[in-house]
Design a protein around this nucleic acid. Structure first.
Lengths: 193, 193
DNA sequence: TTAATTATCGAGCATTGCTCAATAGCGACG
DNA sequence: CGTCGCTATTGAGCAATGCTCGATAATTAA
């Protein structure tokens, strides 16, 4: 199943903590592309890494902590993807579209399965807050009121939903969706002021 | 903790299957007001009902099936709450606002904790689809294009997000939120046509 | 070479979803 | 009123899984 090196190799191949952490989180991220978070068991991760369960608990005090680190890593990817494109609002929207288009599977696995517990949702909120900041910056809104912030945050929910629908079922063209998103954003921000 | 009758009473108090089902689902719904879905264990439900774990599996072949029935029951409540108010779009929005205002805790517990597995999200989608129909009817849109349907569905995400924010942190007044929602809906539908 | 550090493992515990054979409450029928 | 059948109900037990803990071996410092 899981690709890569089975890493059964020799026993007791000692590695530096940093390497191990990266490896384990990398495995988690890769598994996330296949199944939702809560379906990833410690046993599987350990097996894929070629280590014992115990070692994973040596690096991550609890399963939650491991999950949290994996999800955080995934979030960072998303934020990076929307930032590289540029600073205009069109760039941010384009970045979001591209990211979800290419990775809607893992995206869903990441955030739609937030339910595992509040802590995932917290990370999700942090990510969305960061995205909100990006959007506000792109709109040249320096000191938004609470309501504007909330409205933009909610618009992100709208954007995600519509984009996922498009990515999954091909509802409309990419340009159309893009236009709808920017149009809605403009309207929403104007109305919330 | 959990209120109600501990039901320890006499052992082997035989009941009709219908009663038992209702009782168990009721317990699930009540527990949902306290914690997210996935934190509800069969043991607890059984204990609260005063029966053995095994009996629960007699009525619900698997934990998922039990959860699914509980969530469906919760969804029905939501749909009822938005329908009683009336037929106009203002009524639907008002119903949504009222429901989330009064029950944002259980609402979150219901749907934000979808992660347990795809099946919850399916029920969630069904519920949202039904809500979408209500909205479309209220807007007098008989045969919406796929894009319009998708846009309205995504607007529901926007509405939920903004309403939850308002209900939880008091961002803006109720009237303001109401206006924002109807305004955004109008704009979105017009743009998607 | 020896000592200290710590990455790594194996065995084992507790919880939890789930199975299955046995038991007991309740209605039907003589 | 007895007894028989149906099935609601139970208890013991299995398997998976998160997690703990003492022991061990690889690496580094002295």
């Amino acid at each position: 199943m899981a690709s890569g090196n089975p890493a059964q190799a020799r026993r007791r191949a000692r590695q530096s903590p940093d390497e191990r952490r990266k490896q384990l989180i990398g495995i988690g991220l890769e598994m996330l592309t296949t199944r939702p978070l809560h379906q990833i068991t410690i046993d599987e991760v350990a097996a894929e890494a070629g280590i014992s369960r115990s070692l994973l608990f040596h690096y991550f005090p609890t399963k939650r902590d491991y999950y949290a680190d994996v999800v955080r890593a995934g979030s960072r990817r998303l934020l990076r993807a929307t930032r590289v494109e540029g600073d205009s609002i069109d760039d941010v929207v384009a970045g979001l579209l591209s990211f979800i288009e290419r990775r809607h599977e893992p995206y869903i696995a990441l955030f739609r399965s937030s339910g595992t517990d509040d802590w995932v949702h917290e990370i999700f909120r942090d990510t969305r807050a960061a995205l909100t900041d990006q959007v506000l910056t792109a709109l040249d809104i320096a000191q938004p009121s609470e309501l504007v912030r909330a409205a933009v945050g909610a618009w992100l929910a709208y954007a995600e939903e519509l984009t996922l629908e498009w990515a999954q079922h091909g509802t409309g063209t990419r340009e159309r969706v893009h236009t709808l998103l920017t149009g809605a954003l403009e309207h929403i921000v104007r109305a919330a002021r």
